[in-house]
Each structure stands twice: as C-alpha cells, then as structure tokens.
C-alpha cells in the first residue's frame, strides 16, 4: 500500500486531467487540481461550469472517462460512493438531501453508520453490545450537536425545520463521519446574512479544530474570498484560474467569465 502519513500542507487529493461527459455534453474537460491537507479549497464558477460534477467525481458518484484521481497517495480506480465514504470523504448537497422522515439526531447518527458494527442479531437483542455501541456514538453525535448549536431541535423531524437549520443538520451529518475530506456543495445557498456568518464560523471551526480538509463550492464571492486558502475557477467545464484569492480576483479570464466581457 505504502500509505504514508499525510502532513498538513501535503497533497491529500490530486485530480489529473479528468474529463467527464454525458453523451455529447462535456461537463468537465481536462481539469487538474489538488487539495492539500488542512486547507479550505474553493471551487467557483458560473452556473453549469461543472463544479458539482467535479465533487461527484471526487466522491465516486460519477466516473470520469479520462484522467486519474489520487487520494492519499493512492490512485483510485472507479469506486462506488460508499467506498469513498469509507475512505473518509463526506459531503453535503446543493439541495438539502436530509432524510426527511427522521429526527435531527437520527439524521446525524446515520453519519456514524460506517463506524457501527453490531449485526442484525445483536441489534435485535439490543441489550449489551448494540446498546453500548449506540450510546458511544450518541455521545459523539451530541458533541456535534453542541458544536453546531442545534440542541433544541435534536428530536424534531428535519422536514419541519427551516432551510438554514436543515443545511446545518446536513453539515452535522457529514461531520459525524469524522471525514478527512469534507465536500460542501453550496453550503450557504439561500441563506440570510446571519445564517451565512454562522455557517462560515462552523466551516472555519471545523477546519481549525478538527483539521478537516474542506473543499467547497460557493457563489457568494465575499465568503469565498474570505474563508478559502485557494480558489479554483471553472467555466464551461474547463479550468480558467487557480490560486490564492488575490490572484483569482485579479485574473482577467475570471473577470471575463463572471462579467461576460471580452468574448
């Protein structure tokens, strides 16, 4: 295997020349970029630029036709999403993808499923092993609930929660898996200013306290420029800019793509 310890600053995930197309539609063409351990990496771009497709490639939901993805120094073959999850990649979705019929607590508990080992029989009996395991994970999940300040809604079915809180619960569910790489797909879409500030604080805290590497897609430029270490810009499936926020801000291609000038 040769998996060596990855220190902060080393490349955690490298994407090399990947291309993804659906029939004749090219969603991503020859994009390379990397995500370093411990950083907040942003992917921005106009609508339809291929940002979400990129995340879907990273967590195994789409399989790019060309190119390689190297995660923790290991080249990945086509893998199923649950395999990516097992390797420590968690994500949230652009449209909240919570389990509507379940409570906040249960939703976050589902994030722990890969770490729960009790089988059918011990779960049926419950007393003993299954209960002990359940309580251990409950304790961990309660820490996340505290961290995200959602104690009051822990028993509420998530379908009844307002949008901003649902997004927060979804972040909690992703955090429950103790991911190494956390993919956030527009974590602040549709939020008001206060909710955005809260979410920024959570993202930075996660990055800071747990050392989780974060890759996020966001349209709010103020947020992106403030919280991310490096930014990649996609347009029509191709990469048009990459670098620290200042570089990207002054990149002529990026300005053209966003303002529609120069074409």
């Amino acid at each position: 295997m040769g998996v060596h310890e990855i220190k902060p600053g080393d490349v955690l995930l490298a994407v090399e020349d990947i291309s993804l197309s659906f029939g004749a539609v090219r969603a991503i063409s020859d994009v390379s970029f990397d995500i370093r351990k411990g950083e907040v990496r942003a992917i921005i771009g106009p609508n339809g630029a291929g940002k979400t497709s990129m995340l879907n490639c990273i967590n195994g939901f789409y399989h790019p036709q060309q190119g390689t993805i190297t995660y923790k120094g290991q080249k990945r073959s086509a893998m199923k999403p649950y395999e990516a999850a097992a390797q420590g990649i968690a994500r949230t979705f652009q449209n909240v993808a919570l389990f509507k019929g379940m409570s906040t607590l249960d939703n976050i508990m589902t994030g722990r499923n890969l770490k729960m080992k009790s089988n059918l029989l011990t779960s049926m009996i419950w007393w003993g092993k299954a209960e002990k395991e359940e309580l251990e994970h409950r304790r961990f999940v309660e820490d996340i609930i505290d961290f995200l300040e959602i104690e009051a809604i822990r028993k509420t079915p998530v379908g009844r929660l307002p949008y901003g809180l649902q997004k927060r619960v979804e972040l909690g569910r992703a955090l429950a898996a103790e991911p190494e790489l956390l993919l956030l797909d527009e974590p602040m879409a549709g939020m008001n200013l206060e909710e955005k500030e809260d979410m920024c604080r959570f993202i930075l805290d996660v990055n800071d306290e747990f050392g989780t590497t974060i890759c996020l897609i966001e349209h709010d430029m103020g947020v992106v420029m403030d919280i991310s270490d490096r930014v990649m810009v996609l347009d029509y499936g191709g990469k048009i800019g990459d670098g620290v926020p200042e570089e990207v801000r002054t990149n002529q291609n990026v300005i053209d793509a966003y303002l529609g000038g120069g074409h």
Binding site: Y82, A86, A90, A97, L98, F99, G111
Partner: peptide, 12 residues
C-alpha cells in the same frame, strides 16, 4: 427510504 442517493453517498 427517504433519499437513496444521499444514503449511498454517506456510506450505506
């Protein structure tokens, strides 16, 4: 039951 794609992505 509630959302099979999300379930698969978080590891079920």
């Amino acid at each position: 039951r509630d959302m099979d794609i999300a379930a698969e992505i978080i590891g079920f």
